[in-house]
Write a protein that binds this DNA or RNA. Structure first.
Length: 334
DNA sequence: AATCCGCTCAACCGCATTCTC
DNA sequence: GGAGAATGCGGTTGAGCGGAT
């Protein structure tokens, strides 16, 4: 027995919304709000639409202060860095871009930004292959990523591209002020060579202001011990402090930690570099690394979505090494 | 002028998660 | 605690459009 449909499919209109329908929906929500029940809403208004359809229309189109198109280079940069960090979590990415919807960003990524970046990557690969054609010691570069899922491969490619100084976003990566601020508890830190010389050398610098260290199969992120940025409200700070212990290793942000217009504005004006000052390390003690947790999460689902996907677990050792390399891959701080 | 092709984006679908009783 | 309902999310689809042939 399957799940009951959310609405009577036979009596529900599909397809593009008419201006009249838009007006009805917008007027009603402006006056009364959604009433906390999208399913019942279309009946109240007299719309022959599914509640989910109404919700989507409102969120993606009718809601106030929605921006369509015209993505700035800075927005490109934010989308890119977040996609590399967390994959296709469009709602989280959208939360960092006021006025943008997850659907919009998703479409923009799939139709324009991805092509733009991967196109440049191909171009650069061609140039490199000419330069390196006489180099027979390129075994490391020959690790075939064929076993990686498309999304993981895509992110890997983008990540590699970002290391290239010719990257169109190099200015972004060299300019901390442009980095999105995602979690006030994170900051850069160092791992001393005597703790683990090999891993210390693999210290990775993340553009989102997080340094990731692998030690004894644990990930170490940084924790702020003072200087919490004023751009975060007290309640958020408290929430964040409380959330440290259960901090998710996906470079530190939670859906509850969103930037509003005001915060974005502060960031745009160069505030909060001091976010990442001083501090102690804390350790994720669940014994997993950020990617393995994500893989594990995906393994539990049947969804083919996001980076990695369930198939990642079935990768060859080499494939897993590739993923680890990816996780370790460094942005060298300037 | 016709039609083919690729691109864009609004909307749909199905699944996972959260909420409510 | 469990079941069903509601919501949220990400992947996919397809109509519409413009450029190429």
């Amino acid at each position: 027995m399957g799940r009951a449909p959310c609405c009577d499919k036979a009596n529900v209109k599909k397809g593009p919304w008419s201006p009249e329908e838009d007006v009805k929906l917008k007027d009603y929500i402006d006056k009364y709000g959604t009433g906390g029940n999208w399913i019942a809403l279309p009946q109240k208004i007299g719309l022959k639409r599914c509640g989910k359809s109404c919700r989507l229309r409102w969120l993606n189109y009718l809601r106030p202060n929605i921006k369509h198109g015209g993505f700035s280079e800075e927005e490109d940069s934010i989308i890119l860095s977040l996609y590399i960090s967390i994959g296709s979590r469009w709602s989280i990415i959208a939360a960092q871009l006021p006025g943008r919807t997850d659907n919009d960003i998703k479409n923009y990524w799939n139709t324009k930004l991805k092509k733009k970046l991967l196109g440049r990557q191909k171009q650069m690969n061609r140039q490199e292959s000419i330069t390196d054609s006489n180099d027979n010691n390129s075994s490391n570069n020959n690790k075939s990523p064929q076993n990686l899922s498309n999304s993981a491969l895509e992110r890997l490619q983008l990540h590699m591209q970002l290391q290239n100084l010719q990257s169109p976003f190099s200015s972004f990566y060299n300019n901390p002020i442009l980095w999105p601020k995602l979690h006030p508890l994170l900051q850069t830190t160092t791992t001393t060579p005597d703790q683990n010389p090999k891993l210390a050398s693999q210290e990775s610098f993340h553009p989102l202001g997080v340094n990731v260290h692998h030690q004894n199969n644990h990930i170490k992120l940084a924790q702020i011990n003072n200087g919490v940025s004023p751009i975060y409200s007290e309640s958020n700070i408290e929430q964040s402090l409380n959330s440290v212990q259960e901090f998710q290793p996906n470079f530190g942000f939670s859906q509850d930690f969103r930037l509003d217009n005001h915060n974005m504005d502060l960031i745009n004006r160069g505030a909060s570099k001091e976010l990442f000052q001083g501090g102690n390390e804390f350790e994720l003690t669940n014994g997993s690394s950020w990617w393995s947790e994500e893989v594990e999460l995906e393994r539990k689902t049947t969804s083919s979505s996001s980076w990695g996907s369930a198939s990642v677990l079935d990768q060859t050792t080499e494939g897993m090494v590739m993923l680890q390399d990816y996780a370790h891959m460094s942005y060298h701080s300037v």
